[in-house]
């Protein structure tokens, strides 16, 4: 990108930021909804998504916490926020512990991978039904609908990674997924953040320039500093 285009985009960004700051379009929407008497709290949940997505992006590009994609940690984080991070995390680890040997067993049987994934999702859902029905998994059980699919997917990829690459690599990817889901889940559960968003919903638009900047960052990630530490001390 040439200097003049960069300047153009910078000016455009500042202009847009000023416009948003002055008009506060999302704040206006909130006022409108309040005037009509709509219940807002659950709708404001949606505005947590940009915040969570930005957090996942930053964790990947700056820190190097690169788990199974961007969606998996985000969906898990939502589940964690509703069930409680501790209960959610424990349930997830329990599922991982039960489903991983199952997946390895399924691999002994000659079936195509789609069928294997289907069986895994089914079994994870049934297992989760049992634990939530008996009240073992805490929090809101309805929060587990989509996450159970994601979890089965993570188990599937975990075992695949374990066989194709190495146990260490698979454990790393899963650990990174859990770490970012936990961090983002904690963020979602943070009352101050929810209050701030409810008060100034337009602030979530900041996620756009932040993601843009993160997407242009070419420096080393924190984990890469560790990985390439031998180079840093090289002559």
């Amino acid at each position: 990108m040439s200097r003049s285009t960069a300047l153009f985009f910078a000016a455009l960004g500042v202009g847009l930021a000023l416009l948003v700051a002055l008009t506060q379009p999302l704040g206006y929407v909130v006022e409108l909804a309040a005037a009509k008497g709509f219940e807002l709290a659950s709708r404001l949940e949606l505005l947590l998504v940009p915040v969570g997505a930005t957090a996942v992006v930053l964790l990947r590009t700056l820190v190097g916490v690169e788990g199974f994609g961007v969606f998996s940690p985000l969906v898990l984080a939502f589940a964690f926020a509703r069930t409680g991070v501790v209960e959610g995390g424990a349930t997830f680890l329990a599922i991982l512990a039960v489903a991983t040997p199952l997946r390895i067993l399924l691999d002994r049987v000659l079936i195509l991978s789609v069928a294997r994934t289907g069986i895994l999702v089914a079994l994870c859902a049934v297992g989760l039904f049992v634990t939530t029905a008996l009240g073992v998994s805490g929090g809101d059980p309805s929060a587990w609908g989509l996450p159970v699919v994601i979890m089965a997917g993570i188990v599937d990829r975990f075992v695949t990674a374990q066989m194709d690459q190495s146990a260490g690599e698979a454990a790393k990817l899963s650990a990174y997924t859990i770490v970012s889901a936990t961090l983002v889940g904690l963020l979602f559960g943070w009352g101050a953040l929810r209050d701030t968003i409810a008060r100034w919903p337009d602030l979530v638009l900041l996620s756009l320039p932040i993601c843009l900047a993160a997407g242009r960052y070419t420096g080393l990630r924190l984990t890469e500093r560790l990985r390439f530490r031998a180079l840093a001390s090289a002559p």
Partner: peptide, 10 residues
């Protein structure tokens, strides 16, 4: 060089 630079600049 890290992953970010490899993608963006190479």
């Amino acid at each position: 060089m890290g992953l970010n630079r490899r993608e963006l600049e190479v």
